[in-house]
Design a binder for these strands. Structure first.
Lengths: 342, 342
DNA sequence: GGTTAGCACTCAACCAAAGAGAGTGCTAAC
DNA sequence: GTTAGCACTCTCTTTGGTTGAGTGCTAACC
């Protein structure tokens, strides 16, 4: 049995309806829809076929049909019509993002908020990955007598800081001189090499060995943290509006995942460099997200740097709209983070 | 009618029981408790009195009694026995907090996590307020050709940064010189005065007027942000375990409040400088928190600087335990943030 | 006079049975 | 190939009865 045009049409109608209502859809409902000129009985025959093909599930005899994960997959891959973001949505996104001067943390926080506001789903935005960037400058700013803030400025104008210990008796001016030396050594090199470069320098040193050790450790730690880097969640409570999460126990498990960076990170990182990725229900491989889909997208900052963001919604989410919103948001963030600062 | 000793005893027994079970408690239950040597009938008479006095509510005839907000108030003010944190709890708090080098953001994040972990309620921790602190150092670090990071180090070793625009053509060394000048001008003065001091300097300037303007604007903005400063929430999903929030609609409203800094900030800020504050149900004056209580505490960093943290739980929360945990956490944070760095 | 046993009464919670409604699958007619 | 008709299925809602915890009152008790 093959999926002919009519089956396509009917499947699409079912998915569209289910996305709106979350109620198993019956043959009469589809038959009444404009565009489908068949009687309920015919629809029923087709639905029976579609079920056999694995595109529909039946919660029980005498309920309507519900799209399966396979159906959503098909929908996303082939049936989905791209939608433009509406004027109003674009406006809301701008309102969020252009509110104040754009520090990275602030931008991704607002982005997450905007995404969840506009889509009514839950949004996760990860800060741009630093490892592809090159170092532009390193500077040590004294904080107390025995500690300093190490500031790393990267090519895309992104900033990362670390508190490091400093041996007592090192003057501020001295720290500045060391900063200039560090900058001279590392500027233009990728951040991921910085550590190794410094180790070379380190060997030839006679003084400040201790301080340099601290700098190297801080760079190490940063590299380590990259995996679970800055991660902002917006619209946690949005998903509770959907009947899928009217069960408190389920809702609780879902929210618990959102609380842990460790569990959340893989959701965003498994994109494999594709611009968009859609993972549907069981494809996510997490029991808490069995009824969820995740749409992730990457955004660019400068030339080599990318960050990831994602929308988490029920499997019956409005994929077309989510993709278009993510698309628009990607462009907006890029403008904001690369344009203004470069 | 007065609250005599026996009524006290019975009320306390009712509250204790209700805190544990969340089920309306009946006369027989209390009568069986050791320490109360009266028959159910006697208890009933007293309960009837307590209801008339406003300490108990009855969900409906023939259900047990439930403590009213007034009862919890009394409990907190007079009946509560102070409890020590257990070894195990103290250990868990330490595990969270001493995990890595202590940057402020990191510490308050872990503190929120630890508090919610240990209490099983929801925790909110606010970063220390900066306005009481004095400036120790200001430094400008170039980021791009037209922007720099302004770093303000305060007396307690706390760091705050801002991106500010810089006129093109200002050399890094030049920025460093300006930083030294700024530091010389402001060091030792309270952060809240910094802006006004600079305006005095500003008038006499011939060059760098533009840059100084940016610095002043950044200080302004920081003062403004102080009100809704950094705020971390932990254990959002914890409250969903309690039967009070088995209603999804309620849970959703509750979570929505936790998402908005603006709504959350007053919860912590209305403490009025007291070390502990307990607000119970209606006293909070937010419909979403009608069944909640909030216990807030301040912690100290250095001499003048304080931050706030709070636990949000059901009105029937275990106040004694929460207060002791907050107490312990306050001391631990203080040690961590002032001790190590001063 | 405070305390307690006894008893009628109330009300949510639980359960089973009945009815309604939506939807299917099959068959026969178009 | 399409559709009308019909018996059948299964959930959801409603209804009514039962249970049990708990109260309030009264009268007896110490």
């Amino acid at each position: 049995m093959r999926l002919d045009d009519r089956k396509f049409l009917i499947l699409q109608a079912i998915i569209d309806d289910y996305i709106m209502t979350a109620v198993p859809v019956g043959s009469r409902t589809i038959s009444r829809k404009s565009g489908v000129g068949f009687s309920p009985a015919t629809i029923r025959n087709e639905m029976s076929d579609l079920e056999e093909l694995g595109y529909l599930d039946q919660p029980h005899t005498s309920a309507g049909r519900v799209p399966s994960a396979k159906a959503y997959r098909l929908y996303v891959d082939r049936l989905m019509k791209s939608v433009d973001v509406s004027e109003e949505e674009a406006g809301r996104i701008h309102d969020h993002l252009y509110r104040r001067t754009a520090q990275v943390e602030e931008v991704i926080r607002e982005a997450a908020q905007a995404l969840s506001d506009v889509t009514h789903y839950t949004a996760v935005v990860a800060a741009p990955r630093l490892d592809g960037m090159t170092v532009r400058r390193i500077q040590l700013v004294p904080v107390t007598e025995t500690s300093a803030l190490m500031i790393v400025v990267t090519s895309a104008g992104m900033v990362k800081d670390h508190v490091i210990p400093v041996p007592a008796g090192v003057e501020p001016d001295h720290l500045y001189a060391i900063s200039k030396m560090l900058t001279a050594q590392l500027a233009g090199h990728p951040l991921s090499n910085a550590r190794d470069l410094l180790i070379g320098v380190f060997a030839g040193l006679t003084e400040h060995k201790q301080l340099m050790g601290s700098v190297i450790r801080a760079l190490d730690q940063q590299a380590q943290e990259e995996g679970v880097g800055s991660l902002v969640v917006g619209g946690r409570s949005n998903l509770l509006s959907y009947p899928e999460y009217s069960d408190v126990e389920k809702a609780k498990n879902f929210l618990a995942v959102l609380e842990s960076r460790e569990k959340l990170a893989p959701l965003l990182s498994q994109t494999g460099g594709v611009e968009f990725a859609v993972r549907i229900g069981p494809e996510i491989n997490m029991p808490e997200f069995a009824d969820c889909s995740v749409v992730t997208a990457t955004y660019r900052v400068g030339n080599n740097t990318t960050g990831t963001m994602g929308i988490i919604g029920p499997t019956r989410m409005n994929y077309a709209r989510v993709v278009s919103v993510l698309n628009y948001m990607g462009r907006t963030i890029s403008d904001l983070l690369s344009g203004d600062k470069e």
